[in-house]
Design a binder for these strands. Structure first.
Length: 885
RNA sequence: GGGCGAUUAGCUCAGCGGUAGAGCAUCUCGUUUACACCGAGAGGGCCGGGGGUUCGAAUCCCUCAUCGCCCACCA
């Protein structure tokens, strides 16, 4: 016997262990079934589950379980990411608590410490994924730093290098002065900063009384100025082009150059050029062959060939000093407040410094070309489609991808340098030594490049590296390309685009046929969840309170396309109630002896009510499948919710109570079997969304013709119910009964005429078909009108005091003479008026020749029917009014 | 500065050319042995404003407003 309420906490862990232990999540490389593959976006190995994870992994799990039940050989490939900078920072923070830095340990010991940390906390996220009910193929779990994936990384690096698609270059990079590493464009975020615009006067070299004024937001970089640029068309400065100014404080002579970069409208129209510390200036410098003078060190302190006074100063300290020194020289023209966007490192939060360094780059432009084409040609499709624009926009303007990082945790770059700096890119040290020997004609000591690769470099290989590449494994053969990638829009550039590039280049085919982009989860007020705002909702807490299924169902129900998800806890509570409802429906079935019957054939049921529910179920199954096939999770959830609660529980179970309590044994048996069968199908349909409660019920009910626990719901099939189960006449009849019940209820409530008294009146005026329907469903009607059992027995109409008007088409209106007739007259008059105005509107529409000729035929027909119905209703009401006198 | 999205019931959101919907909240009635995490009902919407297209617009177009996100080198 089922307990009175469902307690998720008691069963979730049990079922999960059972599933996992039984291998229910495993793909089968040797299977005949068609494969269905989803690559799990690998979460950070040391991370913990947040709401965004909960959403994305729930959706992936829904798809995986659904396809698995549909008979596909589903592979949901799990794994974690080493998350270079993020993880290194965590470990460094821990070290800092002991007052140590990574340099105290040295590289090898530090990396050991990171591995130790990974061993300690790396299981957290995967444990939490299990609590979410995620069903990936765990034995295939990979880690971006494990042996196989590292081999893939080296293979890709070496290959791309040989192809000239990876190269080393000295150019400006985004330098993080705190983390002491280069970062890619994508890891930089612009934030608004309030600052000043300082206007400096630079005296002309041959005429110190004349000045050219430049404006800058970064006075300290003036130490590295190597030119002043003006627009070639700018009349004010035409005579100055080619002349020199003497750089204040430094004394260097620098040229005035004409370059279109200078905007005559901005500032004074003349701009100082610091090629070593500004991306634009760098370009200008290249065009004019200017010197690049680096005046900052890796901490963004003043360094290099600069006046002694500033050397070693922090950039902001230097700024103050330089401004006051310029002012002292009388060269500060003015200072204006100025708000502008400044680049910040997304990890460190520091202001990024453009810095001239040697770094490794990927020729992204070349790799992007096929990736753009693939989407243009529809070989990979974005859902929703609109994201393709975002993808194209970025890919068509893609910049070289800086892939080297000056940190320790990650894939060390497979490049070795000879004594003279010659570089040998090889898969192993031995191969590099061999190459060096060939190069030098003798064995020489080599030094390995200390840098590691951008984390996203290894993630970019995920769709094939996890399947065994570079080996040609059966898995690779079978599961690549994958079916769908499920992810958020925030990593389209970081990850999706790069997987497209690498997949096409190395596998010759797209990594996935569809990319489903879901929204981000925000809090109830639309704010991004963040620890600092204190508005974080922990998915695990929600699971504890409401159960995993309630959370999953909520996320699925809210995963409509194209909108952020503002998570309202009230929704979770509502779906928890839904779980309880389902639970109690099952309990009801159990109490009433509803068990699956051997040889039960839904197509063969005879009772109208049963034919109706079987058809309604088939319809719901079809609609939810269509929704899931199109990634409309919210629709799938909605259809099943409504069917389960409204159709099955509120109507069908109530409709059939009189049958189960009656003495038609055949009808009883059929109803019991049908009830059990529908419930069993519902459990199947709901399983991808609510795996735990469905599993628990399925097991507890001992489902299946064999009875007993015959295994896991996981191994069951998604119910494929044919449209032939839908019986329109049964649906119409039940619909009619529903309306009749509603009317009887209204009369009972408003006119105080018991339902038992209404029935005979209805029968008195009824035609044969109406009479049959009322007779057939009499018990249901009475029961649903909430009558006490004593009243059900019979009820004589109040003597001569009640009149009834009854419409064969389904509109039923009993009138009670015992109630306030004036009130009733008024109500009738109002209703008639309403109908009249509706009819008038419809007449207008139908009288419009354009409507009749241009609207779709079925729409016109529908409107005609509506009009006829309304007309008939009005006539009945008028008749009723007349009878009232 | 470009681009994208949003604006629907008190709240969170569906619907996206053919009679305005769900959950939560509110109110009324109901303790009928599946379920009070329940049942029956009710109230509550100029579908952001204004134009346009259309026989018909919450839905398509334009425009304005407000909010949000992404991208961008403007000293």
């Amino acid at each position: 016997m089922l307990d009175k309420t469902y307690r998720p906490g008691d069963v979730e862990a049990k079922h999960y262990q059972q599933w996992e232990a039984s291998g229910a999540f495993s793909a089968d490389v040797g299977a005949n079934a068609a494969p269905y593959t989803i690559m799990m976006p690998p979460p950070n190995v040391t991370g913990s589950l947040h709401m965004g994870h909960a959403l994305t992994f729930t959706l992936q799990d829904v798809l995986t379980r659904y396809q698995r039940m549909k008979g596909r050989d589903a592979l949901w490939q799990p794994g974690t990411d080493h998350a270079g900078i993020a993880t290194q920072m965590v470990v460094e923070r821990n070290l800092a608590k002991e007052g140590k830095t990574r340099h105290d340990l040295g590289r090898d010991a530090f990396i050991d410490a990171v591995w130790a940390w990974k061993g300690e906390s790396g299981g957290t996220i995967t444990r939490q994924l299990r609590r979410l009910g995620a069903s990936p193929d765990w034995p295939r779990e990979r880690f971006t730093m494990d042996e196989g994936l590292s081999e893939a990384v080296v293979e890709v690096f070496v290959t791309l290098h040989r192809q000239g698609l990876i190269y080393k270059d000295k150019r400006l990079v985004n330098w993080d002065p705190k983390l002491h590493t280069a970062i890619s464009d994508l890891e930089v975020e612009s934030r608004e900063v309030k600052g000043n615009l300082w206007h400096f006067r630079y005296p002309l070299a041959d005429d110190p009384e004349r000045f050219i004024t430049v404006a800058t937001t970064r006075p300290e970089t003036m130490l590295g100025d190597t030119a002043v640029a003006v627009h070639p068309e700018d009349e004010r400065y035409r005579d100055l082009v080619g002349k020199f100014v003497r750089l204040p404080l430094v004394g260097r002579l620098i040229p005035i150059v004409a370059d279109e970069y200078a905007d005559p409208e901005t500032g004074s129209g003349a701009v100082k050029i610091t090629p070593a510390h500004d991306f634009n200036d760098f370009e200008v410098g290249k065009r004019h062959g200017l010197d690049m003078i680096n005046v900052l060190d890796r901490d963004a302190r003043i360094a290099g060939d600069v006046p002694e006074a500033y050397r070693g100063l922090d950039r902001y300290e230097a700024r103050k000093r330089i401004v006051s020194d310029i002012e002292a020289l009388g060269l500060l023209e003015k200072v204006e407040p100025h708000t502008h966007m400044l680049p910040h490192g997304d990890r460190s939060g520091m202001v990024i410094e453009p810095w001239l360094t040697d770094q490794w780059y990927v020729d992204a432009e070349t790799l992007a070309r096929p990736a753009i084409e693939a989407v243009e040609q529809g070989r990979t499709r974005f859902v929703p489609r609109q994201w393709e624009n975002t993808y194209f926009e970025w890919m068509r303007n893609i910049q070289p991808w800086c892939i080297s990082r000056q940190i320790w945790w990650g894939h060390q770059i497979p490049a070795w340098y000879g004594p003279d700096g010659a570089v040998f890119v090889e898969k192993t040290q031995a191969e590099a030594e061999a190459a060096a020997e060939r190069h030098y004609g003798e064995r020489v000591p080599l030094e390995r490049d200390p840098d590691v690769l951008d984390t996203w470099f290894s993630s970019a290989l995920w769709p094939f590296s996890t399947l065994g590449w570079p080996q040609r494994t059966p898995e690779l053969e079978r599961y690549y390309p994958t079916d769908v990638l499920v992810t958020g829009f925030d990593i389209i550039f970081f990850w999706v685009a790069r997987m497209m590039m690498m997949g096409l280049h190395f596998m010759g085919d797209v990594p996935f046929r569809e990319i489903y982009i879901h929204a981000l989860v925000r809090d109830e007020r639309g704010q991004k969840m963040s620890k600092s705002k204190g508005n974080v909702i922990d998915p695990l807490e929600l699971i504890d309170e409401y159960g995993c299924d309630a959370l999953r169902f909520t996320l699925a129900a809210m995963a409509a396309q194209g909108r952020d998800i503002k998570l309202a806890v009230g929704r979770v509570e509502g779906y928890r109630n839904f779980a309880t409802k389902l639970w109690n429906a099952a309990r009801y079935c159990e109490m009433n002896g509803c068990a699956l019957a051997a040889g039960y054939d839904p197509a063969a049921v005879k009772h109208t009510t049963n034919r109706w529910i079987v058809g309604a179920l088939a319809d719901a199954a079809r609609r939810s499948a269509e929704a899931l096939d199109a990634f409309r999770f919210n629709d799938a959830a909605g259809v099943l919710y409504q069917f389960t609660w409204d159709t099955f529980c509120d109507w069908y179970l109530e409709f059939t109570k009189p049958i189960l309590n009656g003495d038609d044994e055949a009808a009883k048996a059929e109803t019991r079997a049908t009830t059990a069968w529908v419930l069993d199908r519902v459990l199947h349909l709901l399983h991808p969304l609510m795996p735990f409660i469905t599993e628990e019920l399925w097991q507890q009910l001992g489902s299946g013709p064999q009875g007993g626990k015959r295994g896991l719901l996981m191994s069951e099939r998604w119910p494929d119910l044919g449209a032939d189960l839908v019986d329109p006449s049964a649906a119409a009849e039940l619909d009619w009964v529903v309306r009749l019940i509603s009317t009887v209820r209204t009369v009972r409530a408003e006119m105080n005429v018991p339902a038992s008294a209404q029935i005979p009146l209805l029968l008195r005026d009824a035609g044969p078909e109406t009479r049959r329907r009322i007779e057939t469903h009499r018990d249901v009607i009475l029961r649903m009108a909430r009558l006490a059992s004593a009243e059900v027995a019979d009820g004589a109409p109040p003597e001569g005091s009640v009149q009834t008007v009854l419409d064969e088409a389904g509109l039923i209106l009993p009138l009670a003479g015992i109630i306030d007739l004036d009130q009733e007259r008024q109500r009738l008059a109002r209703d008639i008026e309403k109908l009249a105005s509706e009819i008038a509107k419809l007449d207008q529409k139908l009288g419009n020749p354009n409507f009749v000729s241009r609207a779709p035929e079925e729409v016109v027909e529908e409107q005609r029917e509506r009009r006829a119905e309304a007309e008939a209703a009005r006539a009945k009401l008028a008749e009723a009014l007349a009878r009232l006198g």
